[in-house]
Design a protein around this nucleic acid. Structure first.
Lengths: 339, 339
DNA sequence: TTGTATGCGTTATCAT
DNA sequence: ATGATAACGCATACAA
């Protein structure tokens, strides 16, 4: 491995001068600067990150803690994170961990000395007890219940999205609106459920417990939940699935049961994954700016990393957008996937 | 930050002893061992990775280079990688890079001193010139053209998969079988195209250039390509999309054009993403063991990292599996999503 | 403008 | 069984 010493020897200068040139710190003569850069390039010298971080106390790396889930949503979030991190000269150390407190804390400790901060996506994390991690470590909590202790948080406007789409269904005349929930310990799922109830009550409708089923955020769960809902008497006229995966499973179940969508049953999802518009019928849903979510989380973290972690905690929320397609029966005029 | 010195002082021993205890290297008395472990736990001491890697020349970290693409495929691959890496006590440093040679080489240099090896997924990488990276760095090339120089490679059996599904269409009586390709510079796409042609020729069918369109591996591309294919005279009776995303776009286009699937047009995809079975009709496709792909890549890399990078290059291939559902008209008896 | 010397946190070598 | 200390590669305060 070629070190700074090799470059120094080859260029006939001291290591200090090489360091100065490569970091732009301190004065150097034009001539030696050029020679050193030439040698460094020729030898393909790259500073050893570990050694550098030892003395600068910076790693130029951000940790990312993901829950034990998967799907298209995550690759989009990571995309937004990596783009933003790279633009600022940072790397991403990604790790999946159990979403509970212990898993998060363990993973964070394992990252000590390797990262300058952590974005932790842990929807199952309660807001109760403080997170037991090194105090100096900047942390941004993503899609988790905002908390008082030393962590910024970035969440989706789940309630707003739920209210928008359920409100839309109500305006279309539906009164028996079922919901396929995610796990209630999941923050996003709980908030979407809350928005659903709020929207119903605002319209003078009392939420019917028999119309609330759980689908675990998976296609299979949505499929099974829809079959359950078809047995409820009187049958609901609309189904709001708390994410698109479950909505797609539900569409499949309804199709196989001979229930026409949207004529006999309106269906709506949440997330607006790319495939949503290609469903039959195209899925009405709530758009979540997934890429921006990741990008913004990294921006918030970088702010903490650079300006110290001691100032006031930030709580931000990305807003959602109602996307009306045909599955809810609104009869949007356009039928092309560009809608 | 609590260092090994803090632990040593608190426990009344030297740093050397602490190091021995925590690494299980060298002899220590039962008593001091316990005391040190107790102190380390109480102080929440975690060794500084950078400092450690400086002397051990190991980082316990693997680099992952991803192409500038996204979708469900990648999160599954990462899942497999992270599971395997964690099981062996390794971290994952993930970075997206341009898929061309320069992007790969730049990204690999940026990882110097931070990783013990790299899994590079760069389907656009040609097999022509050798990769200009530090010779000692173990590299596993994923989904790229296998090459002679110092890198192991792991690929999907694209040709086998294509031959299987195209052969299936042929056995169903189709002779005019169109293909929606991916970009030809993409290794997977090129291999799937090759398998398609081989299968046709094996059945005595001459591939018709007017039946080959490109869809760029996206839903929108598949949608547009299907519309093009509907204009070809005489019209094809089957469409093989080189991935499921394009197949789903094609299904949508056919539906809106009033073309019944599979009666008037058989459709098949490639990948078997989770949503494939929830399409209408459920999508026949070729299953790619995505999770296993990531897991195996990391296993191969760890082998290089541990046994040195100098022995013979390995080339492995994961096999695919034909998944017959209803979109190709085979009329599989089962209609439930469990199929 | 450049060089020397020190220390970052850890492991490894050599004493004891 | 344990301690003192060198070394890893680098940045930087200080000297020249």
């Amino acid at each position: 491995m070629v070190t700074i010493k090799d470059v120094a020897r080859e260029a006939g200068v001291s290591v200090a001068t090489v360091s100065r040139v490569l970091n732009g710190s301190g004065p150097v003569s034009e001539l030696t600067g050029q020679r050193i850069r030439e040698v460094a390039g020729r030898l393909r010298y790259v500073p050893h990150g570990g050694a550098r971080s030892l003395i600068t106390r910076k790693t130029q790396t951000l940790g990312v803690l993901l829950p034990d889930l998967y799907g298209e949503f995550f690759s989009e979030v990571i995309r937004g994170m990596d783009d933003t991190a790279q633009r600022h000269g940072f790397h991403l150390l990604i790790s999946r961990a159990h979403a509970d407190r212990h898993g998060i804390e363990t993973a964070m400790r394992a990252m000590r000395g390797r990262v300058d901060g952590v974005v932790a996506m842990s929807p199952d994390l309660g807001a109760d007890a403080p997170l037991d991690v090194p105090a100096a470590l900047p942390v941004v909590l993503l899609c988790s219940a905002p908390r008082g202790d030393g962590a910024d948080s970035l969440t989706i406007d789940n309630q707003g999205g739920s209210k928008a789409i359920v409100g839309h269904l109500i305006r279309l005349g539906h009164t028996r609106i079922a919901i396929i929930k995610g796990a209630s310990r999941n923050y996003d799922a709980a908030e979407r459920m809350r928005g659903y109830r709020v929207a119903l009550r605002a319209a003078g409708i009392t939420p019917d417990p028999s119309l609330a089923t759980e689908g675990g955020f998976t296609e299979a769960g949505g499929y099974a939940a829809a079959l359950e809902l078809l047995k409820v008497k009187p049958r609901p006229t609309a189904i709001f699935a708390a994410n698109d995966s479950m909505a797609i499973g539900a569409l499949s179940a309804l199709r196989e049961s001979g229930v026409r969508v949207p004529e006999e049953m309106a269906v709506a999802g949440f997330d607006d994954i790319p495939l949503a518009r290609y469903m039959d019928p195209p899925l009405s849903t709530v758009r979540v700016p997934t890429y921006e979510l990741g990008a913004r989380a990294v921006e918030m973290l970088l702010h903490c990393v650079r300006n110290g972690n001691d100032d006031a905690r930030r709580r931000e929320r990305v807003s959602t957008e109602l996307v009306v397609r045909r599955s809810c029966g609104a009869g949007s005029a356009r039928r092309t996937p560009s809608s």
